[in-house]
């Protein structure tokens, strides 16, 4: 464990909690893409299948359980508890355009052709594109509440910190996980445009980030 990965995991946890609290306290999921949250729940489900078969550390196990629980709680709030505030009309991204290439690629590129490895690879590739429905929804509505942008900021920061973690691990222990690194770089690139808007617009203290 290094400080970059720990900061990344904390940033990821903060992002998930920010979103969950926003929905719970405002009792509304307006402006939130339920599809992205479904995809994130699928990412955690397919990645943490080893939760009960492999014990790495208390931290690892606890964080996996927390991420699974919070992501399912978020999906529950969106599609069940506050479903009448779910903006399905603007949450219109065709997720099959993401799932088909990700499934295909995880069958092409993986470390071993075993169910666990292919599902893990699927979860890595899926995580890179899971935010697309949310970013698409923001471009469609033309704006995002500032709390939603904070959520996106910490979510993008988490993977950017993981890249620093991979650089650090490469130089200190020769660790290099090509699938995770390539996918993580692609994922972070998707956020760059948003990061620019976030820094130039939201940090100036405007309540909503309206896209140009």
């Amino acid at each position: 464990m290094n400080v970059f990965r720990l900061a990344g995991d904390v940033s990821h946890l903060v992002a998930i909690i920010i979103l969950l609290l926003k929905i719970w306290r405002s009792r509304s999921c307006a402006g939130i893409s339920g599809k992205s949250q479904l995809l994130f729940a699928l990412v955690f489900t397919t990645r943490y299948l080893d939760l009960f078969t492999v014990y790495i550390s208390a931290y690892n196990t606890i964080m996996k359980v927390v991420f699974l629980a919070l992501s399912y709680a978020t999906v529950y709030l969106i599609y069940m508890r506050f479903r009448n505030t779910y903006d399905s009309e603007n949450d219109s991204f065709r997720v099959e355009f993401l799932l088909v290439p990700v499934i295909g690629l995880s069958f092409l590129e993986h470390y071993a052709f075993t169910p666990m490895e292919v599902l893990w690879t699927f979860s890595i590739f899926l995580e890179a594109v899971a935010i697309m429905p949310q970013l698409f929804m923001i471009t469609k509505t033309g704006e995002a509440e500032s709390i939603t942008t904070h959520y996106l900021f910490f979510l993008g920061l988490y993977r950017a910190l993981y890249i620093a973690n991979w650089v650090w691990r490469y130089h200190t222990e020769g660790f290099f996980d090509q699938i995770a690194v390539v996918s993580g770089v692609v994922q972070t690139i998707f956020y760059c445009d948003f990061f620019y808007l976030y820094v130039t617009k939201v940090v100036q203290g405007r309540s909503k980030m309206s896209l140009p």
Binding site: D9, H12, V54, N60, M63, Y111, Y162, Q178, I179
Partner: peptide, 10 residues
């Protein structure tokens, strides 16, 4: 080929 590795990362 790429070798698998213990998945200690979240």
């Amino acid at each position: 080929r790429l070798h698998s590795k213990p998945k200690d990362e979240l």
